[in-house]
């Protein structure tokens, strides 16, 4: 025991299993990285004569043609496709979130008809594949060749137009993805609304707020804290689901890559280009989600966790001060 007040040295436990595991992982990762920059034998031979002797060797090519990837990475078609993908993601999510919240509120309404309608909506749009829904919206003119605005069940019309003039491929894709998303978003929003303590609504009501005011100023802002993390997931998932729209002829990021492949057969490089772009956008979205979550966590936590930047600053500061103090003590020894 430390009777003389000297600090006792603490020997931490050695985690042998962890070290073995880490070693295996290091080997596997280096193998993978090696393949990224290795060559592939082609099966052809190249021969040449060196000082009267004919020598042959098998030719090889780079496995991953990174230069080709680089060449197409910022090509106009790809960037156009990327823009379409982003537009589709944003529009479909806006439709999905707004409609989803409305459906969730309907679902929780004391009115039986409203809640049953909301339930049926979710049942239908969650129960059929989104790919089928996209195809149906794209071909909707078969069922409803023309659209008109007027009084229901009468011949009074204010405007009349062909369905296909309104339902371009892009509109069909946006509606298809958005309505499908609303079904999932409504369940997320409902979970968020239910998670807010009933006492909050009661307190709002006792202040004289209407149901609408209490939803808007008290319940929804607190529900957002629960709604945002899974919604972030949905945005990322939507970004990738938009790649289905090529079936209705919208040229998104993947569609653009496919179009180029059709012309030059550079299959892998172009799909790698598309994948890298998807990864970049996903990364940006994740960072955005982090800050959005922090904002809506207001009041839920006594002290919000530090942002990665703040943490980095603290870590670097800690290392620097350790370094400084060590130098100081060394200096003292000298």
């Amino acid at each position: 025991m430390t009777t003389n007040g000297d600090a006792v040295k603490v020997v931490p436990v050695r985690h042998v299993g962890q070290w073995v595991g880490a070693a295996v992982v290091v080997v596997l990762i280096s193998m993978l990285v090696h393949t990224l920059f290795s060559k592939l034998p082609t099966g052809n031979y190249a021969c040449h004569v060196v000082s009267g002797v004919r020598k042959c060797h098998q030719t090889s090519v780079w496995r991953f043609t990174w230069t080709t990837v680089g060449r197409y990475f910022t090509s106009t078609e790809i960037l156009h496709g990327l823009l379409t993908t982003l537009e589709l993601t944003v529009l479909a999510m806006v439709v999905g979130v707004v409609l989803g919240i409305i459906i969730a509120i309907m679902r929780l309404s004391p009115n039986r008809l409203l809640s049953a309608t909301a339930w049926t909506y979710t049942w239908f749009f969650r129960g059929t594949p989104v790919l089928v829904q996209l195809l149906v919206w794209y071909n909707i003119a078969i069922l409803y060749p023309s659209l008109s605005i007027g009084l229901p069940f009468t011949n009074l019309t204010l405007a009349h137009f062909g369905t296909n003039t309104v339902f371009s491929a892009f509109v069909a894709a946006t509606i298809g993805l958005g309505l499908n998303e609303a079904a999932y978003m409504s369940e997320i929003a409902r979970a968020g609304l239910i998670a807010v303590d009933e006492g909050q609504t009661e307190a709002a009501t006792s202040l004289g707020m209407t149901r609408r005011q209490s939803l808007r100023y008290v319940v929804l802002p607190q529900a957002m804290r629960v709604i945002i993390p899974p919604t972030g997931n949905e945005v990322i998932s939507m970004l990738k689901t938009t790649s289905l729209v090529s079936v209705v002829g919208v040229v998104d990021l993947l569609g653009a890559a496919q179009n180029i492949v059709a012309a030059n057969f550079l299959i892998m490089p172009l799909f790698i280009v598309a994948s890298i772009w998807y990864l970049i956008v996903t990364t940006v979205l994740s960072v955005g989600q982090f800050y959005l979550e922090r904002r809506f966590a207001k009041g839920a936590l006594r002290s919000p966790p530090p942002t990665p930047l703040q943490r980095l600053r603290v870590d670097v500061g800690g290392i620097l001060s350790k370094f400084r103090s060590r130098r100081g003590s060394l200096g003292a020894v000298r």
């Binding site: 006492g199 909050q200 307190a203 202040l207 004289g208 209407t210 607190q222």
Partner: peptide, 25 residues
């Protein structure tokens, strides 16, 4: 609802579990 809300606004209520709005200062 509007009339009932207007009535309620003139009656203050304090709850066992406070029910302060957690997202507001």
């Amino acid at each position: 609802d509007r009339q009932i809300c207007a009535e309620r606004a003139r009656i203050g209520m304090v709850f066992q579990r406070f029910n302060l709005f957690q997202h507001l200062t």
